[in-house]
Design a protein around this nucleic acid. Structure first.
Lengths: 257, 257
DNA sequence: GTCATTTTTGACGGTTCGTCATATTAAGTG
DNA sequence: CACTTAATATGACGAACCGTCAAAAATGAC
């Protein structure tokens, strides 16, 4: 009896472990598939990517692949989700920098820029996932997941904003527009990076120039909402470099080559 | 002799006329095809659009359609070009408003917003045409045309900026960054509208809210670059409405329904 | 060892794309 | 008007791609 109970206990425990193992295995395979997909995109471009190629390049059959992704666009969406995950991890790290709150805010922007530089394909997937072609076809679950991650990112910005308001770095009468502020920051970051990534390819603008352009845009906006210290009082170009050196040194040096 | 000459003259003239007629005819047909394509997209979504459907819905054969567009993405690019043409026409009209230079600048932003509202599909095509999936496949000629139109739009912004600088509405020491300023405005406008068009569909945000969000973003940025009169000194919500009433009354009232 | 359930497989049908040999039309010429 | 030549239009066709599904294999319970 006790024995039996213990076995069932063990058994259920085992089942739980197995389930989580299986789920883990499935999750791992999904990441593996996404990796293969990204490699194909890197080598053959977005238009060169096909589900058949993915099936050929991975060790699973078509049915298994379609078990993970409802369709091609769903896979794009999954790539976008991984990209956002990566971005969030960068953003969280960036908050560790020593300095003013505005410098921390700069760090958030720096993270997005870094993402677009380290994994351009991934960043482009995030862009494409906002495109109707993807939104119309991706699975509901995936789209919801994406929205959740978007909320996570805006939550990071929001939190920083409210501490800046309570600490007085942003004028308190802005408090009623906190949500608007967050949206403004996000719009600027998104718009700048989206345009820059195209410009960089089309017109061969140097990385330095694009970084400066981005910093210029952010500074203008942050000055506009009166986030102290203003760019006239502080050398944010210096801060920008510092973020790279202090928080993202490994990534930045890897990027140099 | 004279007669003969006159006939050849007539003839060449006739040829010229014919050629231009033919070219005109071809150009018209292209617009016709683009119209049909847009209708299909409106009714069946972007993912529901296929070249076969286009061929079925127009009075021309597949070969003729492919005579106009190198491939599907090239057609998207063509739609984007038409969209930008329309946007430019709106922007030019918007400059006619009476008021400060900053209000004229608001007009430029208003134009883009209006475009995204009147012809959402067209606006989305402009977005999609910045996507690698399209950029990789569209024909060279079309892509170049697109770049030219982009330059035209930025030229409008640039011109306004430099008059604002010379007139003193923007501090003169900003002059060295004129290009950066233009890029900042463009980034903000693009980012805001791109995010808003998704938000509006996903989260059912009202048009009023989205308009306010956009205006908030612009004001923050323009304040940041010190474009006088600042938003604290002037009711730009009023200006925004005025632009709609004075310059785009027809479009706005058509949009009310 | 057997059965039920889940997962995997890849052959297959249906779409979609884009091409190309052929047919048609138009322009030029005598 | 007849004839040649050049330009344009046609739609049948092959190739590629997508996504499904019945059958096979694997897994786990008893």
């Amino acid at each position: 009896m006790t024995f039996k109970q213990s076995t069932t206990e063990k058994s259920t425990c085992f089942i739980h472990k197995l389930l989580s193992n299986r789920e883990q295995k499935i999750a791992n395979r999904e990441l593996e598939l996404l990796n293969v997909a990204e490699k194909i995109m890197i080598h053959e471009g977005f238009s060169g990517f096909t589900m058949d190629k993915l099936v050929a390049d991975c060790n699973y059959s078509k049915g298994t692949v379609y078990n993970h992704f409802a369709n091609k666009e769903d896979l794009f969406c999954a790539l976008s989700i991984e990209g956002m995950r990566f971005l969030i991890s960068l953003m969280q790290r960036s908050l560790n920098i020593q300095g003013t709150l505005r410098e921390k805010c700069l760090g958030l922007f720096y993270s997005q820029r870094l993402h677009s530089q380290i994994h351009p394909t991934s960043f482009l997937c995030v862009l494409m996932a906002k495109t109707p072609a993807v939104l119309e076809r991706a699975s509901k679950a995936r789209l919801e997941h994406q929205i959740i991650l978007e909320q996570e990112t805006t939550a990071l910005v929001d939190k920083l904003l409210s501490t800046a308001i309570t600490s007085g770095d942003i004028n308190e009468n802005r408090k009623q527009h906190e949500e608007s502020l967050c949206f403004a920051l996000w719009s600027m970051s998104f718009g700048s990076n989206a345009l820059l990534i195209n410009a960089a390819e089309a017109k061969a603008v140097s990385r330095l120039d694009t970084n400066n352009a981005l910093l210029f845009n952010i500074n203008a906006l942050l000055d506009g909402i009166g986030w102290k210290p203003l760019s006239s009082e502080c050398d944010y170009q210096q801060s920008w470099l510092r973020i790279g050196n202090e928080v993202f040194s490994k990534e930045v040096s890897a990027l140099q080559e």
